[in-house]
Design a protein around this nucleic acid. Structure first.
Length: 944
DNA sequence: CGGATCACG
DNA sequence: GACGTACGTGATCCGA
């Protein structure tokens, strides 16, 4: 069988959609987007390259969809009616796909009125009849019907993205039935993307079980009559016609006319001239070099400016496996240099300029990047090729005299051109910190990469129990490099004996600081290529990386806080709490620590004898808000007092006292620190102080918001996305009534109440609101029952009603879970991944916890992506509008707070509204509008 | 340092 | 047969 013919049929249309989503957004020299074309080109190349290999092609053709309509639309007008238009920057790539195919001199099959799948089926069968083997280059589940052997000739499939062959076993694994039964399974389960109805409520699990049990679709449907009473039975009977229609729709047409004879698909290698011209035209320079050099492995380009680097990474991804890392020698701290002269510094700067990529780390005397004073800078240009430049060491009695170091101003003047050079990529670990520190020295660092952010784009949520999942340097070094970093404690000591970094001796400081830069360089070499391979490039390059300098700027701005007002509140709260404390002691008949839940529980349930005390796993009574409210309802006066005491004590310690402490003496403002990797879903988090949980829900708490104020002649402007998560849920789950309500600007909870209870009043609206949120969070009947104060049975009925009124929601939940179980991660509309390593846990509580989080993550994460995109665009949008005095200060998940001159309010509102409302586009076209509400005032409280 | 509590979206 | 029930955060306090 040495000369057995083997036809490869490439499902080109399906490929480019997948390539578009998985590959970085490259553009060619003319600015045309070419990311998908690039992936397509390398894939064709690789296939053609396999010409002489054992299982490689002897014949090869590409099949494309000619038009969006096919004969299936005649049968069923809703077929593929839900298909969104292709993304804006993919459209111009369609014709290029044909150009690329032509450049390889490959036949390109496009026929009207049938789909690519039908042409593939027809060609595959024709070839099989001739005794040829066939490989379908696709991972489309519809095509899996064709897999198998007949006439001594086999048809299999090849998923080039995963580099996986799909044959009978793989199909059985996916569908639980043999390939020829796949059509029956598909007919039962339907397909929301293609709008194939299937049987409502039947998913892949049930579908394959039914077909495995009864043999085929007709038998399964016939068997419904004899099933015992169940939802499934009803549905099978009621929706029989849907399933039968679906069966017709999923059946491939295997007898299409063949416009190009099989023999004409013979593969004769790749003609280099037209291909060279094509590669040249679209700037695929490294492929071009590869062509010149024969078909050997791609040469690793040395040009590492960020734009070119994307091309390099994309290339790695199309190879389907990660490039082997260059061998890295073990960390050797003895190799680091302490730079103590301008001559040496100049040489390092020149070498960094030439390398075009340098890892940088700053050493300071504080964890607070706004307060921190720079004491040194370290650089790394390769493994063990690192240095430390001390700039402000010594000064206390630690040293008899200051150690020898370069002049700080002179050194920074030498470093500034390097750090600001657009052609040199600066790599940081948590660059936001260094950006702020260096900004304090008048240096605006750009462009940057950030290994912490890259790690987050790749591995958010990936930590297994016991193995850290964080993105800090020490953890990353251990996880990826197997290296234990010198700890800060080892260098500076701990507790009372701790010394500031500026007092550490130079040899010790050099070991520590240069190692950080070295490790950062190594982590970058290790993690950056993974982005393109694992599909993290889009979210990193388009969202998170550009956000770093934006958020750094917000931190530096800070926000003004009225200290006098806070002090006054603190005093009031102090008086009130001590009065309440006395009263509480009186009622209890003894003194005790009101702030101790343990003591309080014992007083309430043991001493005073209130009923219903529940002990948690710590063996302690619970005394939280819900418990105290119940006691209060039973007439326990002490519970009311404790509740009030708690509220005031909380406000005082967490806000009015702490915020005064947080005012920076130099700027007179409060500067929070945002973490870009804190929340697994992609949200930001805020610490030191947390400005994302300033009270607003109660009247008394809101007074604290009034202490956040604008400077003279300025105002604060708060811009909120209204109901963004529910809007996204309506879009993502395709819930027509909710989408319609949002389009018409209706009150969404009222609309839900109408749909569910038939009428709107205070009670039904409140219930609907609870249920709406419950859905976003991954509902359980017991959880909902607890919130609504009803029995679990009744809660279950409401959930059923909800799913019945909004079937898209149930489908969304099932699809999301299925996908997370299979792939291990969820994805936002913009491609951000969150991993759920415990989604298949045998521990039920653990597993269900993951399931709830997995249902929520795409929605919460998409919302986070959208506001981040808005923040990135806000800076240039304001500048272009001439609004250079408008400053973005805070982000609170669905809200942005600005400070601006009173006179700029009208114009700024218009820009802010436009940027926020349009932030999803053009990457994602939402089917609901994004509502933005804007308010202004002298204080944050007044701006709402 | 973990648990309980409670502030926010 | 037991489990333990809404997602995502951070700060503060108590008490081991």
């Amino acid at each position: 069988m040495a000369d057995k013919k083997h036809l490869y049929l490439v499902d080109g249309s399906a490929y480019i959609f997948r390539a578009y989503h998985r590959l970085p957004p490259l553009t060619d020299p003319e600015g045309t987007p070419v990311g998908a074309v690039y992936g397509y080109t390398t894939m064709l190349w690789k296939l053609a390259d396999d010409l002489d290999k054992a299982d490689g092609p002897t014949h090869l053709a590409v099949v494309l969809d000619k038009s969006s309509k096919s004969f299936r639309n005649e049968i069923y007008d809703q077929y593929k009616a839900n298909r969104p238009d292709p993304p804006e920057d993919l459209v111009p790539q369609f014709p290029l796909i044909r150009d690329a195919t032509r450049a390889f001199s490959l036949p390109c099959i496009e026929e009207p009125d049938v789909e690519a799948d039908d042409m593939i089926a027809s060609y595959a069968r024709a070839a099989q009849a001739e005794g040829w083997d066939v490989t379908i280059v696709s991972s489309d589940k519809d095509l899996m019907q064709l897999v198998g052997e007949e006439n001594g000739a086999r048809i299999d499939m090849l998923d080039t993205m995963k580099n996986a062959r799909i044959y009978i076993e793989e199909v059985e694994e996916k569908f639980g039935v043999r390939p020829e039964k796949v059509g029956d399974v598909l007919a039962l389960m339907g397909d929301s993307v293609d709008n194939i109805p299937g049987i409502f409520g039947v998913g892949p699990k049930t579908a394959s079980k039914l077909i495995a049990e009864h043999g085929d679709l007709t038998s399964a449907l016939d068997a419904a009559e004899d099933m015992k009473k169940s939802k499934l039975k009803e549905r099978l009977i009621e929706h029989r016609a849907d399933a039968e229609l679906s069966r017709i729709l999923v059946t491939l047409k295997e007898d299409c006319g063949l416009p190009v004879p099989l023999e004409d698909m013979k593969l004769d290698g790749v003609p280099s001239e037209p291909l060279a011209a094509f590669l040249e035209k679209h700037g695929f320079t490294s492929l071009r070099r590869r062509l010149d050099a024969g078909t050997g492995s791609p040469t690793r380009a040395n040009d590492l400016n960020p734009a070119k680097q994307e091309t390099k990474s994309a290339e790695a991804s199309s190879e389907g496996n990660s490039q082997p890392l260059p061998e890295m020698p073990a960390i050797d701290r003895a190799k680091y240099e302490c730079v103590q002269s301008m001559d040496r510094l100049t040489e390092w700067v020149e070498r960094a300029q030439a390398a075009r990529l340098v890892a940088v780390d700053t050493e300071t005397d504080s964890l607070d990047s706004i307060k921190a004073r720079l004491v040194g800078v370290s650089l790394a240009l390769g493994p063990n090729d690192a240095c430390y430049i001390p700039l402000a060491h010594g000064g206390s009695d630690m040293f008899a005299e200051k150690p020898e170091q370069v002049d700080k101003a002179e050194a920074l003047a030498a470093l500034k051109p390097l750090l600001e050079d657009e052609a040199v990529l600066k790599v940081f670990q948590n660059g936001k910190y260094d950006l702020n520190v260096l900004s304090g020295e008048g240096i605006a660092v750009a462009p940057i990469d950030d290994t912490m952010i890259i790690s987050f784009a790749l591995d958010a949520g990936r930590g297994e129990a016991g193995i850290g999942g964080g993105h800090g340097m020490d953890e990353l070094a251990q996880r990826h490099l197997g290296h234990v970093c010198l700890s800060y404690k080892e260098v500076c000591g701990t507790g009372k004996k701790a010394i500031p970094f500026g007092e550490v001796t130079l040899d010790k400081a050099t070991e520590y600081a240069a190692e950080d830069a070295d490790v950062t360089w190594r982590l970058h070499a290790h993690l950056k290529p993974r982005l393109a391979i694992e599909g993290g490039t889009k979210i990193y390059q388009r969202v998170d990386r550009p956000l770093v300098p934006v958020v750094a700027g917000m931190e530096r701005e800070g926000i003004k806080v009225d200290r006098t007002r806070l002090a006054k509140l603190s005093e009031e709260f102090a008086t009130e709490t001590s009065r309440l404390e006395k009263e509480i002691h009186e009622i209890a008949g003894q003194e005790f620590t009101v702030g101790s839940p343990k003591q309080l529980g014992e007083i309430l349930f043991d001493k005073m004898g209130y009923k219903g005390g529940k002990k948690g796993k710590s063996g302690q009574y619970s005394t939280d808000q819900s418990v105290l409210e119940r006691l209060s309802g039973d007439g326990a006066e002490i519970a009311d007092k404790v509740l009030e005491w708690r509220q005031l004590a909380k406000l005082k310690s967490t806000y009015t006292d702490a915020l005064q402490e947080a005012i920076n003496p130099k700027t007179g403002r409060v500067h929070t620190s945002y973490s870009l990797v804190g929340a697994q879903t992609g949200r930001l988090s805020s610490t030191d102080p947390n400005l994302q949980n300033i009270p607003i829900r109660t009247e008394i708490g809101r007074q604290i918001r009034d202490a956040f104020v604008a400077e003279e002649r300025n105002v604060l402007l708060a811009a909120d996305y209204s109901q963004i998560e529910l809007r996204l849920a309506a879009h993502m789950a395709d819930v027509a009534p909710l989408k319609e309500a949002f389009e018409h600007g209706e009150d969404i909870h009222s609309r839900t109440a109408t749909e569910m209870f038939g009428e709107v009043n205070r009670d039904t609206r409140a219930r609907a609101k609870t249920i709406n949120f419950a859905i976003l969070y991954g509902i359980s009947r017991w959880g909902l029952a607890g919130r609504l104060g009803v029995e679990p049975d009744e809660a279950q009925e409401m959930i059923d009603t909800y799913f019945k009124r909004f079937p898209g929601i149930q489908k969304y939940i099932l699809h999301t879970l299925e996908s997370v179980r299979e792939k291990g991660y969820s994805e936002t509309l913009f491609g951000r991944k969150t991993w759920f390593p415990r989604i298949n846990s045998k521990n039920q509580a653990e597993r269900q916890g993951s399931e709830r989080a997995a249902i929520n993550a795409p929605i919460q994460g998409t919302s986070a992506d959208i506001i981040k995109r808005a923040m990135v665009r806000m800076v240039p949008a304001l500048r272009e509008a001439g609004l250079d005095k408008v400053r973005m200060l805070l982000q609170v998940h669905d809200e942005l707070v600005f400070e601006l001159p009173e006179g700029d309010v009208a114009k700024a509102s218009e820009v802010i509204e436009r940027v926020m409302a349009g932030a999803a586009m053009p990457a994602v076209e939402l089917s609901v509008p994004l509502g933005v509400e804007i308010g202004t005032g002298k204080s944050w409280g007044a701006a709402h």
